[in-house]
């Protein structure tokens, strides 16, 4: 760990120097809140998959990072993983978030484990395996984390393609219906039938409302 705290630009420069072509893009986001508008910085670094482990070693050399979590997004042709770190914690107002992003193409969803560098990462890596269907190569503990044992293979909740959650798995708990074990409705006379249709129309009107407008009206 070097003694002096670097500025966000210097941190980015260190990555560019150490990793060279492995860095695809960088961005520094600044946010100021409260009355004094104290700045806080989030550094986003886009990486090649091969540069992930060297990048984490670089980060460890700067300041042993705190890994918050690994998040992931299905962006169509690829799955993006974001490794959210923070460095310089313990310095008043001087902490930076550093997010390392790697994109994994859908036909080769493999990423090396980082649990050998940061043992706590295994928890989040297990979650990414079950939620996004990525393969973490060399993971010391590859069991499922949150999903139950009987959860179907090849279904990954956060994916937006064919391997996402099928509609059949969703049980709508709000749904109410006529109990199935009751006898069939008696044959209805014409005017009564009209009533039923009117009632059904009414029902469609109520349930057909978009949730967003309903929510909006409630807040108005």
């Amino acid at each position: 760990m070097s003694g002096r705290r670097m500025t966000p630009d210097e941190v980015v420069a260190v990555f560019a120097r150490e990793l060279g072509g492995g860095v695809r893009g960088t961005r520094i986001a600044e946010r100021r809140e409260g009355a004094k508008k104290h700045p806080s910085y989030t550094i986003w670094i886009d990486l090649d998959r091969e540069a992930l482990k060297p990048a984490i070693r670089t980060l460890i050399d700067i300041h042993f990072p705190h890994l918050s979590v690994i998040s992931g997004t299905d962006i169509g042709t690829a799955v993006e993983l974001n490794y959210h770190f923070s460095i310089y914690y313990g310095t008043k107002g001087g902490e930076y978030m550093v997010t390392l992003t790697v994109a994994l193409p859908k036909d080769d969803l493999r990423v090396p484990t980082i649990a050998d560098l940061i043992p706590g990462a295994v928890f989040s890596e297990r979650e990414k395996q079950e939620m996004l269907g990525v393969e973490v190569v060399g993971i010391p503990d590859g069991r499922r984390l949150f999903l139950p044992e009987e959860f179907p293979e090849g279904v990954y909740p956060w994916r937006k393609d064919g391997t996402g959650i099928p509609d059949a798995m969703v049980k709508d708990l709000w749904a109410v219906g006529r109990p199935a074990n009751r006898p069939a409705r008696p044959v209805v006379a014409r005017e009564v039938q009209g009533e039923v249709q009117a009632a059904e129309k009414e029902e469609a009107k109520v349930t057909g409302r978009a949730p967003s407008t309903e929510e909006a009206e409630r807040h108005e």
């Binding site: 709508d172 708990l173 709000w174």
Partner: peptide
């Protein structure tokens, strides 16, 4: 009683 805010989850057997 009705699922509440979790009504459309994929992992529920309730209410």
């Amino acid at each position: 009683s009705s699922g509440g805010p979790f009504y459309d989850s994929y992992n529920l057997d309730g209410p």
